[in-house]
Protein backbone atom coordinates (compact mmCIF):
# COMPACT_ATOMS: atom_id res chain seq x y z
CA UNK A 1 0.00 0.00 0.00
CA UNK A 2 2.65 2.49 1.07
CA UNK A 3 4.87 1.28 -1.78
CA UNK A 4 2.05 1.89 -4.28
CA UNK A 5 1.62 5.45 -3.02
CA UNK A 6 5.39 5.99 -3.16
CA UNK A 7 5.69 4.63 -6.69
CA UNK A 8 2.70 6.66 -7.90
CA UNK A 9 4.19 9.79 -6.33
CA UNK A 10 7.58 9.15 -7.93
CA UNK A 11 5.86 8.82 -11.33
CA UNK A 12 3.88 12.04 -10.98
CA UNK A 13 6.85 14.02 -9.66
CA UNK A 14 9.15 12.56 -12.31
CA UNK A 15 7.04 14.12 -15.05
CA UNK A 16 6.97 17.45 -13.24
CA UNK A 17 10.72 17.62 -12.60
CA UNK A 18 13.00 14.75 -13.50
CA UNK A 19 16.16 15.89 -11.71
CA UNK A 20 14.50 16.93 -8.50
CA UNK A 21 12.73 13.59 -8.25
CA UNK A 22 15.82 11.50 -8.98
CA UNK A 23 17.71 13.52 -6.38
CA UNK A 24 14.97 12.93 -3.85
CA UNK A 25 14.94 9.18 -4.39
CA UNK A 26 18.75 9.05 -4.21
CA UNK A 27 18.66 11.05 -1.01
CA UNK A 28 16.12 8.63 0.43
CA UNK A 29 18.25 5.61 -0.41
CA UNK A 30 21.30 7.27 1.11
CA UNK A 31 19.34 7.96 4.30
CA UNK A 32 18.19 4.35 4.42
CA UNK A 33 21.78 3.11 4.14
CA UNK A 34 23.11 5.48 6.77
CA UNK A 35 20.31 4.64 9.19
CA UNK A 36 20.73 0.92 8.78
CA UNK A 37 23.10 0.25 11.72
CA UNK A 38 20.92 2.16 14.20
CA UNK A 39 17.77 0.40 13.04
CA UNK A 40 19.49 -2.97 13.05
CA UNK A 41 20.59 -2.44 16.65
CA UNK A 42 17.08 -1.44 17.60
CA UNK A 43 15.60 -4.55 15.97
CA UNK A 44 18.04 -6.77 17.88
CA UNK A 45 17.08 -5.11 21.18
CA UNK A 46 13.38 -5.50 20.36
CA UNK A 47 13.82 -9.19 19.55
CA UNK A 48 15.62 -9.72 22.87
CA UNK A 49 12.98 -7.84 24.84
CA UNK A 50 10.12 -9.74 23.17
CA UNK A 51 11.85 -12.96 24.15
CA UNK A 52 12.60 -12.09 27.76
CA UNK A 53 9.52 -9.99 28.50
CA UNK A 54 6.83 -12.18 27.03
CA UNK A 55 3.09 -11.47 27.01
CA UNK A 56 2.54 -14.16 29.63
CA UNK A 57 5.11 -12.59 31.90
CA UNK A 58 3.41 -9.19 31.66
CA UNK A 59 -0.03 -10.67 32.33
CA UNK A 60 1.39 -12.60 35.30
CA UNK A 61 3.02 -9.55 36.89
CA UNK A 62 0.44 -6.90 36.09
CA UNK A 63 -2.53 -9.19 36.56
CA UNK A 64 -1.73 -9.43 40.25
CA UNK A 65 -3.23 -6.08 41.08
CA UNK A 66 -2.89 -2.36 41.07
CA UNK A 67 -1.55 -0.06 43.73
CA UNK A 68 1.85 1.48 43.65
CA UNK A 69 3.61 -1.78 42.80
CA UNK A 70 1.29 -2.32 39.84
CA UNK A 71 1.92 1.21 38.62
CA UNK A 72 5.71 0.91 38.85
CA UNK A 73 5.75 -2.50 37.17
CA UNK A 74 3.48 -1.22 34.38
CA UNK A 75 5.76 1.76 33.83
CA UNK A 76 8.80 -0.49 33.89
CA UNK A 77 7.42 -2.99 31.37
CA UNK A 78 6.08 -0.21 29.17
CA UNK A 79 9.45 1.53 29.10
CA UNK A 80 11.67 -1.45 28.38
CA UNK A 81 9.53 -3.01 25.68
CA UNK A 82 8.37 -2.00 22.24
CA UNK A 83 5.28 -3.67 20.87
CA UNK A 84 3.21 -3.04 17.82
CA UNK A 85 -0.31 -1.82 18.59
CA UNK A 86 -1.91 -5.04 17.40
CA UNK A 87 -0.15 -6.88 20.23
CA UNK A 88 -0.22 -4.18 22.90
CA UNK A 89 -3.92 -3.31 22.88
CA UNK A 90 -5.37 -6.83 22.83
CA UNK A 91 -2.96 -7.46 25.71
CA UNK A 92 -4.39 -4.40 27.50
CA UNK A 93 -7.85 -5.84 26.87
CA UNK A 94 -6.81 -9.10 28.55
CA UNK A 95 -5.39 -7.18 31.50
CA UNK A 96 -8.65 -5.24 31.91
CA UNK A 97 -10.62 -8.49 31.98
CA UNK A 98 -8.29 -9.69 34.71
CA UNK A 99 -9.30 -6.72 36.80
CA UNK A 100 -6.30 -4.49 36.22
CA UNK A 101 -7.29 -0.85 36.69
CA UNK A 102 -7.49 1.71 33.88
CA UNK A 103 -4.84 3.70 35.74
CA UNK A 104 -2.32 0.88 35.39
CA UNK A 105 -3.30 0.27 31.75
CA UNK A 106 -2.75 3.98 31.04
CA UNK A 107 0.78 3.91 32.48
CA UNK A 108 1.56 0.76 30.54
CA UNK A 109 0.29 1.96 27.16
CA UNK A 110 1.59 5.53 27.48
CA UNK A 111 5.12 4.48 28.45
CA UNK A 112 4.99 1.82 25.76
CA UNK A 113 4.30 4.50 23.16
CA UNK A 114 6.21 7.49 24.47
CA UNK A 115 9.20 6.16 26.41
CA UNK A 116 11.64 4.41 24.13
CA UNK A 117 14.55 2.67 25.77
CA UNK A 118 14.74 0.28 22.83
CA UNK A 119 14.54 3.09 20.28
CA UNK A 120 17.52 4.76 22.01
CA UNK A 121 19.98 3.60 19.26
CA UNK A 122 17.88 5.48 16.69
CA UNK A 123 16.87 8.48 18.79
CA UNK A 124 20.41 9.34 19.93
CA UNK A 125 21.51 9.63 16.28
CA UNK A 126 19.04 12.49 15.88
CA UNK A 127 18.71 14.21 19.25
CA UNK A 128 22.04 13.29 20.85
CA UNK A 129 22.42 11.41 24.13
CA UNK A 130 21.48 14.28 26.46
CA UNK A 131 18.27 15.41 24.80
CA UNK A 132 17.23 11.80 24.25
CA UNK A 133 17.49 11.17 27.99
CA UNK A 134 15.66 14.41 28.84
CA UNK A 135 12.86 13.63 26.37
CA UNK A 136 12.40 10.14 27.78
CA UNK A 137 12.36 11.32 31.38
CA UNK A 138 9.76 13.97 30.49
CA UNK A 139 7.75 11.25 28.73
CA UNK A 140 7.79 9.10 31.85
CA UNK A 141 6.49 12.04 33.90
CA UNK A 142 3.78 12.68 31.28
CA UNK A 143 2.76 9.02 31.46
CA UNK A 144 2.38 9.25 35.25
CA UNK A 145 0.30 12.43 35.05
CA UNK A 146 -1.89 10.94 32.32
CA UNK A 147 -2.49 7.77 34.30
CA UNK A 148 -3.43 9.82 37.35
CA UNK A 149 -5.94 11.81 35.28
CA UNK A 150 -7.32 8.61 33.73
CA UNK A 151 -7.65 7.21 37.25
CA UNK A 152 -9.60 10.29 38.37
CA UNK A 153 -11.92 10.10 35.35
CA UNK A 154 -12.68 6.45 36.03
CA UNK A 155 -13.11 7.10 39.73
CA UNK A 156 -10.22 4.81 40.61
CA UNK A 157 -8.16 7.55 42.19
CA UNK A 158 -9.94 9.69 44.74
CA UNK A 159 -9.05 13.38 44.80
CA UNK A 160 -9.16 13.25 48.59
CA UNK A 161 -8.41 9.83 49.88
Amino acid sequence: MLYLITIALIFILYFKDKNKTINGVKKGIKKLKKNLPAFLNMMILVALSLHFVSKDLIVEYLGAGSGLTGLSLAGFFGSITLMPGFIAFPLSGILLERGVSYTVIAVFTTTLMLVGILTYPVEKEYFGVKVTIIRNVISLVIALIVSLLVGIFYGEVGLIS
Binding site: L2, Y3, I5, T6, L9, I10, L13, K20, T21, N23, G24, V25, K26, K27, G28, I29, K30, K31, L32, N35, F39, M43, P84
Partner: peptide, 19 residues
Protein backbone atom coordinates in the same frame (compact mmCIF):
# COMPACT_ATOMS: atom_id res chain seq x y z
CA UNK B 1 7.28 -5.61 9.44
CA UNK B 2 9.96 -2.97 8.97
CA UNK B 3 10.57 -3.95 5.34
CA UNK B 4 6.88 -3.32 4.67
CA UNK B 5 7.31 0.40 5.04
CA UNK B 6 10.82 1.51 6.06
CA UNK B 7 12.39 1.81 2.56
CA UNK B 8 9.29 3.60 1.23
CA UNK B 9 9.27 6.00 4.17
CA UNK B 10 12.91 6.98 3.61
CA UNK B 11 12.29 7.60 -0.09
CA UNK B 12 9.26 9.74 0.79
CA UNK B 13 11.43 11.71 3.22
CA UNK B 14 14.03 12.19 0.47
CA UNK B 15 11.34 13.48 -1.89
CA UNK B 16 9.96 15.72 0.84
CA UNK B 17 13.35 17.32 1.37
CA UNK B 18 13.89 18.03 -2.33
CA UNK B 19 10.36 19.08 -3.24
Amino acid sequence: TMLKFLPAVFILIGLFETW
